[in-house]
């Protein structure tokens, strides 16, 4: 396999060129501050993208994860306040379980009724959001009530540097969590049979059954893990911004899907990688970041994200068709 046929190499090359170009237009880009903040912005989108990648590899499409993330974080934080609980581990486990439970609803409908995942997740996402606002509450939990223990946890930094003017900038330790999760998902996809069954399902459900994969297990695994990742990301998100907003993550679905597609995953399933997805996430965040630095109006960001989806999807579709020539 030649180097350039690997999607990751192409994406990395494009990313590098884009970084150099952006750096030329705006030298502030290469400042440590900016790079650290860029990486910080990767964390939440990146963790969600891992879940979306799993679903996309299996040939499905998930738009419910922002709702699951919101539900997991808001319910958990509400619970913490209600019980007066102080701790980090239990809330995160809680959020993961809530996400996984929501994911299992997706899996049930996809498996039992052979429904198109896009439709299932559109429905469940909307249901979960509505349920949350209608039953649990609509008020934001902001800094005056937000559990300090979570704030302290998310403040942790890997290392800090002191700049010439005496101010500090630090790289959040949350990137380590992101990298660890990414490594975990990568190893799972590449080196376990359940991971390979996801690729097999994306390659062809009929053939996967004939070979002897248990697709029920695979489908539940995919959607529960995607839900769990979303729940975890939601929890981490609110800890990092000190705010639990039940109307959060609007429009995130588009950004995350754009990042995954940009990372070379095929929307028809069966092709994609964790490394590519991480590069795609970085590229998306970087583009958004430079639009902000260049003081481009935020409404135009929508146009950019939309264009990224269309162009990246066209490019991967073209790649896959050429492969089958």
């Amino acid at each position: 396999m030649t180097l350039f046929r690997r999607s990751e190499v192409v994406i990395a090359a494009i990313l590098l060129v884009a970084m150099i170009l952006i750096g030329l237009v705006n030298p502030a880009f290469w400042q440590v501050d900016n790079l650290f903040s860029l990486l910080r912005s990767n964390v939440i989108i990146g963790i969600m993208a891992l879940g979306v990648l799993l679903v996309m590899l299996s040939g499905g499409f998930d738009v419910s994860f922002p709702a699951f993330a919101v539900a997991a974080m808001y319910l958990t934080v509400k619970g913490m306040l209600y019980f007066g609980y102080v701790g980090v581990l239990v809330p995160f486990v809680c959020a993961i379980l809530i996400g996984a439970a929501c994911g299992s609803i997706n899996a049930f409908f996809v498996w039992k009724f052979r429904m198109i995942p896009l439709i299932v997740t559109l429905g469940t996402g909307s249901m979960v959001r509505g349920f949350l606002l209608g039953v649990v509450g609509t008020s934001m939990i902001n800094i005056d009530r937000f559990p300090p223990v979570l704030i302290d946890f998310a403040k942790a930094e890997v290392f800090t540097i002191t700049k010439a003017d005496g101010t500090h900038s630090g790289l959040t330790a949350m990137v380590l969590i992101y990298f660890a999760l990414a490594l975990g998902v990568h190893l799972m996809l590449r080196h376990t049979m359940i991971g390979r069954s996801i690729f097999a399902l994306g390659g062809g459900a009929e053939a996967a059954t004939r070979v002897g994969f248990d697709l029920k297990k695979t489908i539940f695994f995919i959607y529960c893990l995607a839900g769990a990742l979303a729940g975890f990301a939601g929890m981490l998100h609110c800890s990092m911004i000190w705010l639990a907003n039940p109307r959060d993550f609007v429009g995130t679905d588009l950004e995350v899907i754009a990042a995954v597609v940009l990372g070379g995953a095929s929307i028809f399933g069966g092709r994609g990688s964790v490394l590519g997805t991480m590069l795609g996430v970085f590229m998306l965040v970087m583009v958004k970041n430079s639009l902000i630095i260049m003081k481009v109006d935020t409404t135009w960001q929508l146009v950019v994200v939309g264009s990224i989806i269309v162009i990246a999807t066209a490019a991967t579709a073209w790649r896959d068709r050429k492969r089958q020539a």
Binding site: G204, A207, S266, G270
Partner: peptide, 11 residues
């Protein structure tokens, strides 16, 4: 043929 087009021959 029931093959997986997205996987390698070996797999």
């Amino acid at each position: 043929f029931s093959l997986f087009g997205n996987l390698t021959v070996a797999e």
